[in-house]
Design a protein around this nucleic acid. Structure first.
Lengths: 198, 198
DNA sequence: GTATCCATATATCAACCCGATATAGCGGGG
DNA sequence: CCCCGCTATATCGGGTTGATATATGGATAC
Protein backbone atom coordinates (compact mmCIF):
# COMPACT_ATOMS: atom_id res chain seq x y z
CA UNK A 1 0.00 0.00 0.00
CA UNK A 2 2.87 2.30 -0.68
CA UNK A 3 0.73 3.65 -3.50
CA UNK A 4 -1.79 4.93 -1.01
CA UNK A 5 0.92 6.67 0.97
CA UNK A 6 2.42 8.34 -2.08
CA UNK A 7 -0.89 9.54 -3.48
CA UNK A 8 -1.99 10.78 -0.08
CA UNK A 9 1.08 12.91 0.34
CA UNK A 10 1.01 14.23 -3.21
CA UNK A 11 -2.60 15.24 -2.65
CA UNK A 12 -1.27 17.94 -0.35
CA UNK A 13 1.34 19.31 -2.70
CA UNK A 14 3.77 18.09 -5.38
CA UNK A 15 6.95 16.46 -4.17
CA UNK A 16 9.93 14.48 -5.31
CA UNK A 17 10.89 11.02 -4.14
CA UNK A 18 13.30 11.80 -1.37
CA UNK A 19 10.89 14.30 0.11
CA UNK A 20 8.12 11.70 0.11
CA UNK A 21 10.36 9.32 1.99
CA UNK A 22 11.13 11.76 4.77
CA UNK A 23 7.63 13.11 5.02
CA UNK A 24 6.15 9.66 5.38
CA UNK A 25 8.70 8.52 7.90
CA UNK A 26 7.86 11.52 10.06
CA UNK A 27 4.11 11.18 9.69
CA UNK A 28 4.32 7.69 11.10
CA UNK A 29 6.58 8.67 13.95
CA UNK A 30 9.32 6.47 12.61
CA UNK A 31 7.11 3.40 12.78
CA UNK A 32 7.41 2.77 9.09
CA UNK A 33 10.35 3.68 6.92
CA UNK A 34 9.66 3.52 3.21
CA UNK A 35 12.32 1.77 1.25
CA UNK A 36 13.74 3.41 -1.86
CA UNK A 37 13.56 0.03 -3.48
CA UNK A 38 9.80 0.35 -3.23
CA UNK A 39 9.41 4.08 -3.62
CA UNK A 40 11.02 4.88 -6.95
CA UNK A 41 9.69 1.92 -8.91
CA UNK A 42 6.22 2.65 -7.56
CA UNK A 43 6.46 6.27 -8.63
CA UNK A 44 7.28 5.22 -12.16
CA UNK A 45 4.49 2.67 -12.17
CA UNK A 46 2.03 5.30 -11.01
CA UNK A 47 3.24 7.57 -13.76
CA UNK A 48 2.70 4.85 -16.37
CA UNK A 49 -0.83 4.42 -15.01
CA UNK A 50 -1.46 8.12 -15.29
CA UNK A 51 -2.04 8.60 -11.58
CA UNK A 52 0.84 11.07 -11.22
CA UNK A 53 2.74 13.35 -13.58
CA UNK A 54 6.48 14.03 -13.47
CA UNK A 55 7.34 17.70 -13.95
CA UNK A 56 10.69 19.35 -14.68
CA UNK A 57 13.02 16.41 -14.98
CA UNK A 58 16.21 18.47 -15.33
CA UNK A 59 17.23 21.69 -13.58
CA UNK A 60 16.05 24.67 -15.61
CA UNK A 61 18.21 27.75 -15.42
CA UNK A 62 20.47 28.42 -12.46
CA UNK A 63 21.81 25.36 -10.76
CA UNK A 64 20.20 22.99 -8.29
CA UNK A 65 20.59 19.31 -8.70
CA UNK A 66 18.44 16.88 -10.59
CA UNK A 67 14.99 16.59 -9.10
CA UNK A 68 11.90 14.86 -10.42
CA UNK A 69 8.84 16.47 -8.92
CA UNK A 70 5.62 14.50 -9.09
CA UNK A 71 2.10 15.87 -9.14
CA UNK A 72 -1.13 13.94 -8.62
CA UNK A 73 -3.66 13.81 -11.45
CA UNK A 74 -7.43 13.54 -11.31
CA UNK A 75 -7.18 9.87 -12.05
CA UNK A 76 -4.75 9.62 -9.16
CA UNK A 77 -7.24 11.28 -6.84
CA UNK A 78 -9.86 8.71 -7.78
CA UNK A 79 -7.39 5.87 -7.28
CA UNK A 80 -6.45 7.29 -3.90
CA UNK A 81 -10.02 7.26 -2.62
CA UNK A 82 -10.51 3.76 -3.94
CA UNK A 83 -7.41 2.44 -2.19
CA UNK A 84 -8.39 4.19 1.01
CA UNK A 85 -11.68 2.32 1.23
CA UNK A 86 -10.61 -0.97 -0.31
CA UNK A 87 -11.50 -4.05 1.76
CA UNK A 88 -8.63 -5.22 3.89
CA UNK A 89 -7.11 -8.72 3.72
CA UNK A 90 -6.36 -8.96 7.38
CA UNK A 91 -3.20 -10.81 8.17
CA UNK A 92 0.16 -10.31 9.79
CA UNK A 93 1.46 -7.30 7.89
CA UNK A 94 -1.96 -5.68 7.85
CA UNK A 95 -1.26 -3.76 11.02
CA UNK A 96 1.18 -1.47 9.25
CA UNK A 97 -1.29 -1.15 6.39
CA UNK A 98 -3.94 0.11 8.72
CA UNK A 99 -1.59 2.69 10.20
CA UNK A 100 -0.79 4.12 6.81
CA UNK A 101 -4.47 4.28 6.04
CA UNK A 102 -5.17 6.16 9.24
CA UNK A 103 -2.82 8.97 8.23
CA UNK A 104 -5.22 9.85 5.43
CA UNK A 105 -8.48 9.31 7.23
CA UNK A 106 -9.22 13.01 7.14
CA UNK A 107 -10.06 12.64 3.47
CA UNK A 108 -12.99 10.33 4.21
CA UNK A 109 -16.49 11.28 5.35
CA UNK A 110 -17.25 10.50 9.03
CA UNK A 111 -19.59 7.57 8.31
CA UNK A 112 -16.98 5.82 6.22
CA UNK A 113 -14.35 6.45 8.83
CA UNK A 114 -16.45 4.85 11.52
CA UNK A 115 -17.30 1.93 9.29
CA UNK A 116 -13.63 1.25 8.61
CA UNK A 117 -12.68 1.63 12.26
CA UNK A 118 -15.44 -0.77 13.25
CA UNK A 119 -14.32 -3.31 10.69
CA UNK A 120 -10.80 -3.11 11.99
CA UNK A 121 -11.97 -3.54 15.57
CA UNK A 122 -13.97 -6.60 14.61
CA UNK A 123 -10.87 -8.07 13.01
CA UNK A 124 -8.86 -7.46 16.17
CA UNK A 125 -11.54 -9.03 18.30
CA UNK A 126 -11.47 -12.13 16.13
CA UNK A 127 -7.73 -12.25 16.58
CA UNK A 128 -8.13 -11.85 20.32
CA UNK A 129 -10.60 -14.72 20.43
CA UNK A 130 -8.10 -16.87 18.55
CA UNK A 131 -5.29 -16.04 20.93
CA UNK A 132 -7.48 -16.71 23.95
CA UNK A 133 -8.47 -20.07 22.54
CA UNK A 134 -4.80 -20.89 22.01
CA UNK A 135 -4.04 -19.92 25.60
CA UNK A 136 -6.77 -22.21 26.89
CA UNK A 137 -5.55 -25.07 24.72
CA UNK A 138 -1.94 -24.61 25.71
CA UNK A 139 -2.66 -24.39 29.44
CA UNK A 140 0.16 -26.31 31.10
CA UNK A 141 1.48 -27.97 28.01
CA UNK A 142 4.04 -26.15 25.87
CA UNK A 143 6.91 -24.39 27.48
CA UNK A 144 7.06 -21.22 29.47
CA UNK A 145 8.12 -19.00 26.57
CA UNK A 146 5.38 -20.13 24.27
CA UNK A 147 2.89 -19.26 26.96
CA UNK A 148 4.55 -15.90 27.55
CA UNK A 149 4.34 -15.29 23.82
CA UNK A 150 0.63 -15.91 23.80
CA UNK A 151 0.15 -13.66 26.77
CA UNK A 152 1.96 -10.98 24.86
CA UNK A 153 -0.36 -11.49 21.92
CA UNK A 154 -3.30 -11.07 24.21
CA UNK A 155 -1.95 -7.93 25.90
CA UNK A 156 -0.95 -6.32 22.62
CA UNK A 157 -4.28 -7.03 20.96
CA UNK A 158 -6.19 -5.72 23.94
CA UNK A 159 -4.13 -2.54 23.88
CA UNK A 160 -4.99 -2.11 20.23
CA UNK A 161 -8.67 -2.69 20.81
CA UNK A 162 -8.79 -0.26 23.70
CA UNK A 163 -7.10 2.39 21.62
CA UNK A 164 -9.46 1.81 18.73
CA UNK A 165 -12.49 1.91 20.99
CA UNK A 166 -11.41 5.26 22.31
CA UNK A 167 -10.97 6.55 18.79
CA UNK A 168 -14.39 5.32 17.74
CA UNK A 169 -16.02 6.82 20.80
CA UNK A 170 -14.42 10.13 20.12
CA UNK A 171 -15.59 10.01 16.54
CA UNK A 172 -19.14 9.09 17.45
CA UNK A 173 -19.64 11.79 20.04
CA UNK A 174 -18.09 14.26 17.64
CA UNK A 175 -20.59 13.53 14.92
CA UNK A 176 -23.49 12.20 16.97
CA UNK A 177 -23.65 8.87 15.22
CA UNK A 178 -25.11 5.92 17.09
CA UNK A 179 -23.93 2.35 16.85
CA UNK A 180 -25.70 0.13 14.29
CA UNK A 181 -27.71 -2.85 15.47
CA UNK A 182 -27.54 -5.77 13.04
CA UNK A 183 -24.63 -7.10 11.04
CA UNK A 184 -22.57 -8.61 13.80
CA UNK A 185 -20.00 -11.07 12.51
CA UNK A 186 -19.19 -14.13 14.58
CA UNK A 187 -15.81 -14.78 16.11
CA UNK A 188 -15.26 -18.23 14.55
CA UNK A 189 -12.01 -18.91 16.32
CA UNK A 190 -11.15 -22.24 14.65
CA UNK A 191 -9.88 -23.86 17.77
CA UNK A 192 -8.69 -27.18 16.50
CA UNK A 193 -5.53 -28.12 18.35
CA UNK A 194 -3.95 -30.98 20.24
CA UNK A 195 -6.20 -33.46 18.50
CA UNK A 196 -4.02 -34.98 15.86
CA UNK A 197 -2.98 -38.58 15.98
CA UNK A 198 0.32 -38.05 14.13
CA UNK B 1 13.76 -16.36 9.57
CA UNK B 2 11.53 -19.17 8.47
CA UNK B 3 14.69 -21.26 8.55
CA UNK B 4 14.93 -20.82 12.30
CA UNK B 5 11.35 -21.91 12.73
CA UNK B 6 11.75 -25.01 10.59
CA UNK B 7 14.97 -26.12 12.24
CA UNK B 8 13.57 -25.50 15.70
CA UNK B 9 10.56 -27.68 15.07
CA UNK B 10 12.57 -30.44 13.41
CA UNK B 11 14.87 -30.46 16.44
CA UNK B 12 11.99 -31.97 18.36
CA UNK B 13 11.17 -34.70 15.88
CA UNK B 14 11.11 -35.27 12.11
CA UNK B 15 8.17 -33.85 10.23
CA UNK B 16 6.85 -33.15 6.77
CA UNK B 17 5.96 -29.74 5.37
CA UNK B 18 2.28 -29.58 6.09
CA UNK B 19 2.85 -30.67 9.65
CA UNK B 20 5.42 -27.92 10.11
CA UNK B 21 2.93 -25.39 8.89
CA UNK B 22 0.24 -26.36 11.37
CA UNK B 23 2.61 -26.82 14.27
CA UNK B 24 4.10 -23.39 13.80
CA UNK B 25 0.76 -21.69 13.38
CA UNK B 26 -0.39 -23.19 16.65
CA UNK B 27 2.80 -22.40 18.53
CA UNK B 28 2.37 -18.76 17.70
CA UNK B 29 -1.28 -18.70 18.62
CA UNK B 30 -2.25 -17.83 15.07
CA UNK B 31 -0.08 -14.71 15.13
CA UNK B 32 2.03 -15.88 12.26
CA UNK B 33 0.89 -18.18 9.53
CA UNK B 34 3.68 -19.63 7.43
CA UNK B 35 3.02 -19.51 3.74
CA UNK B 36 3.57 -22.58 1.60
CA UNK B 37 5.26 -20.32 -0.86
CA UNK B 38 7.99 -19.86 1.74
CA UNK B 39 7.90 -23.21 3.42
CA UNK B 40 8.55 -25.69 0.64
CA UNK B 41 11.26 -23.76 -1.19
CA UNK B 42 13.02 -23.19 2.13
CA UNK B 43 12.89 -26.88 2.92
CA UNK B 44 14.57 -27.72 -0.36
CA UNK B 45 17.17 -25.01 0.16
CA UNK B 46 17.95 -26.34 3.62
CA UNK B 47 18.31 -29.77 2.12
CA UNK B 48 20.77 -28.49 -0.48
CA UNK B 49 22.75 -26.89 2.34
CA UNK B 50 22.81 -30.15 4.23
CA UNK B 51 20.94 -28.79 7.23
CA UNK B 52 18.09 -31.26 6.85
CA UNK B 53 17.65 -34.66 5.20
CA UNK B 54 14.58 -35.85 3.33
CA UNK B 55 13.61 -39.40 4.21
CA UNK B 56 11.16 -41.77 2.51
CA UNK B 57 10.06 -39.76 -0.47
CA UNK B 58 7.45 -42.28 -1.56
CA UNK B 59 5.11 -44.41 0.57
CA UNK B 60 6.85 -47.61 1.59
CA UNK B 61 4.65 -50.65 2.05
CA UNK B 62 1.01 -50.26 2.92
CA UNK B 63 -0.55 -47.15 1.54
CA UNK B 64 -0.63 -43.64 2.84
CA UNK B 65 -0.12 -40.78 0.52
CA UNK B 66 3.06 -39.20 -0.61
CA UNK B 67 4.87 -37.59 2.26
CA UNK B 68 8.35 -36.13 2.44
CA UNK B 69 9.57 -36.34 5.98
CA UNK B 70 12.50 -34.13 6.93
CA UNK B 71 15.04 -34.75 9.64
CA UNK B 72 17.56 -32.25 11.05
CA UNK B 73 21.26 -33.00 10.66
CA UNK B 74 24.16 -32.08 12.92
CA UNK B 75 25.01 -29.24 10.64
CA UNK B 76 21.41 -28.13 10.93
CA UNK B 77 21.65 -28.09 14.70
CA UNK B 78 24.68 -25.83 14.52
CA UNK B 79 22.93 -23.54 12.06
CA UNK B 80 19.92 -23.41 14.34
CA UNK B 81 21.90 -22.20 17.33
CA UNK B 82 23.67 -19.67 15.18
CA UNK B 83 20.41 -18.24 13.86
CA UNK B 84 18.94 -18.16 17.33
CA UNK B 85 21.66 -15.87 18.64
CA UNK B 86 22.33 -13.86 15.52
CA UNK B 87 22.23 -10.08 16.01
CA UNK B 88 18.91 -8.59 15.03
CA UNK B 89 18.47 -5.88 12.40
CA UNK B 90 15.67 -4.14 14.19
CA UNK B 91 13.05 -2.69 11.94
CA UNK B 92 9.39 -2.97 11.18
CA UNK B 93 9.07 -6.70 10.52
CA UNK B 94 11.45 -7.54 13.33
CA UNK B 95 8.65 -7.90 15.84
CA UNK B 96 7.48 -11.12 14.22
CA UNK B 97 11.08 -12.28 14.07
CA UNK B 98 11.47 -11.88 17.78
CA UNK B 99 8.30 -13.84 18.44
CA UNK B 100 9.53 -16.77 16.41
CA UNK B 101 12.81 -16.64 18.26
CA UNK B 102 11.07 -16.71 21.60
CA UNK B 103 9.42 -20.02 20.78
CA UNK B 104 12.83 -21.66 20.83
CA UNK B 105 14.32 -19.83 23.76
CA UNK B 106 14.36 -22.98 25.84
CA UNK B 107 17.32 -24.17 23.80
CA UNK B 108 19.50 -21.32 25.03
CA UNK B 109 21.34 -21.03 28.36
CA UNK B 110 19.82 -18.55 30.84
CA UNK B 111 22.54 -15.92 30.49
CA UNK B 112 22.13 -15.78 26.74
CA UNK B 113 18.37 -15.59 27.10
CA UNK B 114 18.62 -12.61 29.42
CA UNK B 115 21.11 -10.94 27.16
CA UNK B 116 18.81 -11.28 24.17
CA UNK B 117 15.78 -10.11 26.13
CA UNK B 118 17.69 -7.09 27.36
CA UNK B 119 18.85 -6.24 23.88
CA UNK B 120 15.30 -6.42 22.64
CA UNK B 121 14.07 -4.22 25.46
CA UNK B 122 16.72 -1.64 24.70
CA UNK B 123 15.55 -1.62 21.09
CA UNK B 124 11.97 -1.05 22.17
CA UNK B 125 12.99 1.75 24.48
CA UNK B 126 14.79 3.45 21.61
CA UNK B 127 11.66 3.13 19.56
CA UNK B 128 9.60 4.56 22.40
CA UNK B 129 11.93 7.52 22.68
CA UNK B 130 11.52 8.13 18.96
CA UNK B 131 7.75 8.00 19.14
CA UNK B 132 7.70 10.33 22.13
CA UNK B 133 9.91 12.79 20.29
CA UNK B 134 7.55 12.63 17.32
CA UNK B 135 4.59 13.30 19.61
CA UNK B 136 6.29 16.35 21.09
CA UNK B 137 7.19 17.64 17.64
CA UNK B 138 3.72 17.08 16.26
CA UNK B 139 1.98 18.75 19.19
CA UNK B 140 -0.91 20.70 17.69
CA UNK B 141 0.23 20.51 14.13
CA UNK B 142 -0.73 17.52 12.00
CA UNK B 143 -4.24 16.23 12.12
CA UNK B 144 -6.10 14.35 14.74
CA UNK B 145 -5.54 10.91 13.23
CA UNK B 146 -1.83 11.31 12.91
CA UNK B 147 -1.69 12.20 16.56
CA UNK B 148 -3.92 9.25 17.46
CA UNK B 149 -1.58 7.04 15.46
CA UNK B 150 1.42 8.19 17.43
CA UNK B 151 -0.42 7.67 20.67
CA UNK B 152 -1.10 4.15 19.55
CA UNK B 153 2.56 3.64 18.83
CA UNK B 154 3.37 4.82 22.30
CA UNK B 155 0.75 2.62 23.99
CA UNK B 156 1.72 -0.46 22.00
CA UNK B 157 5.42 -0.02 22.64
CA UNK B 158 4.84 0.53 26.34
CA UNK B 159 2.75 -2.62 26.49
CA UNK B 160 5.58 -4.53 24.85
CA UNK B 161 8.18 -3.14 27.22
CA UNK B 162 6.08 -3.93 30.27
CA UNK B 163 5.60 -7.48 29.09
CA UNK B 164 9.30 -7.89 28.41
CA UNK B 165 10.24 -6.43 31.76
CA UNK B 166 8.04 -8.95 33.50
CA UNK B 167 9.63 -11.75 31.53
CA UNK B 168 13.13 -10.57 32.39
CA UNK B 169 12.25 -10.22 36.05
CA UNK B 170 10.88 -13.71 36.11
CA UNK B 171 14.00 -15.01 34.46
CA UNK B 172 16.34 -13.19 36.81
CA UNK B 173 14.68 -14.32 40.02
CA UNK B 174 14.55 -17.82 38.64
CA UNK B 175 18.27 -17.98 38.10
CA UNK B 176 19.46 -15.37 40.58
CA UNK B 177 21.22 -13.23 38.03
CA UNK B 178 21.64 -9.55 38.79
CA UNK B 179 21.48 -6.73 36.26
CA UNK B 180 24.77 -5.62 34.72
CA UNK B 181 26.04 -2.11 35.37
CA UNK B 182 27.86 -0.67 32.36
CA UNK B 183 27.08 -1.01 28.68
CA UNK B 184 24.07 1.24 28.49
CA UNK B 185 23.37 2.35 24.95
CA UNK B 186 22.00 5.82 24.43
CA UNK B 187 18.59 6.53 23.02
CA UNK B 188 19.77 8.70 20.15
CA UNK B 189 16.29 9.55 18.96
CA UNK B 190 17.25 11.53 15.86
CA UNK B 191 14.62 14.13 16.36
CA UNK B 192 15.06 16.25 13.33
CA UNK B 193 11.64 17.36 12.23
CA UNK B 194 9.79 20.50 11.20
CA UNK B 195 13.06 22.21 10.40
CA UNK B 196 13.25 22.04 6.67
CA UNK B 197 13.03 25.13 4.59
CA UNK B 198 11.64 23.35 1.53
C1' DG C 1 -21.83 -48.85 -2.73
C1' DT C 2 -20.81 -44.64 -4.48
C1' DA C 3 -20.95 -39.79 -5.01
C1' DT C 4 -19.58 -35.84 -2.82
C1' DC C 5 -17.24 -32.95 0.16
C1' DC C 6 -13.45 -31.70 3.14
C1' DA C 7 -8.84 -32.06 5.12
C1' DT C 8 -4.36 -33.44 3.93
C1' DA C 9 -0.11 -32.72 1.28
C1' DT C 10 3.00 -30.73 -2.06
C1' DA C 11 4.10 -27.34 -5.34
C1' DT C 12 4.47 -23.02 -8.17
C1' DC C 13 3.51 -18.26 -9.45
C1' DA C 14 3.30 -13.19 -9.64
C1' DA C 15 3.58 -9.33 -6.83
C1' DC C 16 5.36 -6.89 -3.23
C1' DC C 17 8.60 -5.06 -0.13
C1' DC C 18 12.90 -4.49 2.26
C1' DG C 19 17.91 -3.82 2.95
C1' DA C 20 21.98 -2.92 0.92
C1' DT C 21 24.37 -0.72 -2.28
C1' DA C 22 25.91 2.45 -6.23
C1' DT C 23 25.99 6.95 -8.23
C1' DA C 24 26.54 11.74 -8.09
C1' DG C 25 26.12 16.82 -6.76
C1' DC C 26 26.80 19.89 -3.29
C1' DG C 27 28.08 22.25 1.16
C1' DG C 28 30.66 22.80 5.27
C1' DG C 29 34.46 21.92 8.64
C1' DG C 30 39.07 20.83 9.82
C1' DC D 1 41.93 21.47 -0.15
C1' DC D 2 40.04 17.34 0.93
C1' DC D 3 36.96 14.54 3.01
C1' DC D 4 32.64 13.81 5.11
C1' DG D 5 27.80 13.98 5.18
C1' DC D 6 23.31 15.16 3.30
C1' DT D 7 20.50 15.25 -0.73
C1' DA D 8 18.57 12.65 -4.63
C1' DT D 9 17.79 8.90 -7.72
C1' DA D 10 18.29 4.23 -9.00
C1' DT D 11 18.92 -0.95 -9.04
C1' DC D 12 19.54 -5.65 -7.24
C1' DG D 13 18.88 -9.85 -4.72
C1' DG D 14 16.28 -12.17 -1.60
C1' DG D 15 12.57 -13.16 1.34
C1' DT D 16 7.31 -13.28 2.13
C1' DT D 17 2.82 -13.31 0.93
C1' DG D 18 -1.61 -14.84 -1.28
C1' DA D 19 -3.60 -17.25 -4.73
C1' DT D 20 -3.88 -21.16 -7.10
C1' DA D 21 -3.22 -26.04 -9.05
C1' DT D 22 -2.75 -30.84 -8.15
C1' DA D 23 -3.81 -35.07 -6.09
C1' DT D 24 -5.29 -38.42 -2.47
C1' DG D 25 -7.55 -40.15 1.53
C1' DG D 26 -11.40 -40.35 4.80
C1' DA D 27 -15.98 -39.19 6.23
C1' DT D 28 -20.66 -38.36 5.37
C1' DA D 29 -24.83 -38.53 2.88
C1' DC D 30 -27.99 -40.87 -0.02
Amino acid sequence: MIELAILGLLKDHPMHGYQLSRELTDQLGGLWKVSYGSLYPTLRRLERQGAVEATSGTPGTGGGRRKTVYRITEHGEALFLQLLEEPIHDGAAEDARFRVRLVFFRYLPPETRIRLLDRRRQGLQDRLAGVKAAIRSAADADDEYTRALMEHGRAATETDIAWLTGLIQHERTRYGITAPQGDRRRAQATLRRKERTA
